[in-house]
Simulated assay, not measured.
Amino acid sequence: MTVIERPPLWSRLKPWLVGFDIPLLLAVLWLCFWGLLCMYSAGYDHGTRFVDHARNMVLGLTLMFLVAQVPPQRLMAVAIPLYAFGVTLLIATALFGITKKGATRWLNIGITQIQPSELLKIATPLMLAWWFQKREGLLRWPDFIAAFGLLLLPFLLIAKQPDLGTGLLVLAAGLYVIFFAGLPWRLILPVMVLAAAGIVALVASEDHICEPDVKWVLLKEYQKHRVCTLLDPSKDPLGKGFHIIQGEIAIGSGGVTGKGFMQGTQTHLEFIPERTTDFIFAAFGEEFGLMGALALLIGFSALILRGLMIASDAPTLFTRLMAGAVTLSFFTYVFVNMGMVSGILPVVGVPLPFISYGGTAMVTLGLSLGLLLSIARVRKLVKT
């Protein structure tokens, strides 16, 4: 009688775990710790927010682990179908979508409602990275024009919903790919100079352009209110400026060390709007203070720096572009969220990765991290 001995559990799991980037995983776990801690405090009396956040985090980490097993070559193969599927869903949302609070962003697929724009945060840079990989060594200016066309299509569809916050995130992710692909500085610098001049002109003419009878051609009325509120929140302290003012009060009252875990008065007396989603950094700053914010920034900085290191050492143009775009997208999330809560950027509804509540955002986060880990695994396996 032949006895077949089963290999130990570690031997069976080792092929799945080999090549994982430990510094990146440590940064992720550090941020997950703070995310759970903050959500417990901000959301313990807010229904099942903490339990749901923990579930979403497990789902995101599971997706991260599964996507990390997929070689970048296979990820490249799904670039066109994923992009086409995402754009099709955006068109379906425009035609048949569900409208909530004046925005048509959700699509009913029978078993649940989805927000297709979240998919384009991954599909758009993936498609652009595929585009430039196919033209490696043969890039000409028509290729960059075509790339901008591929980027503007989902951006305009998302902005029309309207969802300018998500649209700008998709736009930023695509622009990072185009920049890393070799967009000439002579085209980048004039845009940066014009943007800086526009910001200065906006601030200088705030008294005139924010008058009620002045119409902004390119932005909707609510978007005009957001910008004008940023310039002077005190003009509408109980309306449009309430979010910014309360966020600044909460962060400022935290001081150096914070008021303590679950001791935030602005948070638990419900002065902070959206305290478990977009404005959770205000609740975090109130309870953990400057030291807590620095601990959070250290985690994000470690994640971003490690991602850029993975991008710089990636074996192919596709993997370099994708890793660079995904990494700088994390930077965009963090900068925009902390900036809007602190009163230096308009309120655009961008979550803080790992910290803010949101199932779709956590799924997107897990997919993005899985892409980074997949690229890091290939790099390590090639070296060995």
Rank of each mutant, 00 (worst) to 15 (best):
R105K: 14
G110I: 07
L107H: 04
K101N: 13
T112A: 14
V87M: 02
G97R: 03
I109D: 02
F96Q: 08
L89K: 05
A84P: 00
A94C: 00
A84C: 14
V78H: 04
T99A: 11
I98M: 04
I109L: 14
T93D: 12
I111Y: 08
G110M: 13
K101L: 12
T93Y: 01
A79E: 13
Y83R: 10
G86D: 11
L90E: 13
R105P: 10
Y83G: 00
L89Q: 15
A103Q: 09
A79H: 10
I98L: 06
F96C: 03
L90I: 07
G86T: 05
T112N: 10
G97N: 00
W106E: 10
Y83W: 15
L95T: 04
K101V: 04
G86I: 07
T104R: 15
F85K: 01
G97P: 01
A103L: 10
K101C: 05
P81L: 10
A84F: 14
I111M: 13
L95P: 03
A94I: 03
A92C: 14
I111L: 13
T88I: 10
K100L: 11
A84M: 15
G102F: 07
I111Q: 11
V87C: 14
G86V: 06
I111N: 09
I111T: 11
W106P: 11
T104V: 05
G102H: 06
T104P: 03
Y83A: 06
A92T: 03
A79Y: 12
T112Y: 02
Y83E: 14
T99P: 04
P81H: 07
A79R: 11
G97A: 03
A77L: 14
I109M: 03
L90W: 02
A79N: 03
